[in-house]
Nucleic acid binder design. Structure first.
Length: 111
DNA sequence: CGGTTGACTTTCG
DNA sequence: GCGAAAGCCAACC
């Protein structure tokens, strides 16, 4: 914490929090924008999560983030959309009818 | 400083 | 189960 009101090491930046949460998603698992938003303490900021995804830094497993419907938010015909689906299947995530069973691959576990 | 923008979510028909 | 409409929040310009 600096004397000035600059950014604390605890992020406090929605973007950093979002990126950190996404990095916490285990391999072969997926999370939704709403869940990520909730994890960072902003249950209503799901849209902001998507916004952050568009600005995601390299190395971020952004492909593990999908919408609440278990569906890829990106257009199915888009390069990024196809790439995301391929990466998910590559990690063992099964897509049925273009959808992911959040009850099985969703994270964190509902339990 | 303020209106516009979204890789969203939930509710209703 | 699916499509349309409204709600919500932070970043962007």
């Amino acid at each position: 914490m600096s004397h000035r009101g600059d950014i604390n090491s605890s992020s406090q930046n929605t973007y950093s929090d979002v990126f950190d949460a996404v990095r916490r998603i285990p391999y072969g698992r997926v999370s939704t924008y709403g869940d990520i938003a909730r994890l960072i303490g902003r249950p209503r900021a799901a849209r902001v999560v998507g916004y952050a995804m568009h600005r995601c830094p390299p190395g971020l497993p952004w492909h593990r983030v999908i919408n609440a419907q278990g569906r890829i938010s990106l257009p199915a015909d888009s390069t990024a959309g196809l790439s995301q689906r391929r990466r998910l299947e590559e990690e063992g995530v099964v897509l049925i009818g273009g959808r992911v069973d959040l009850d099985r691959f969703g994270w964190p576990d509902a339990d």
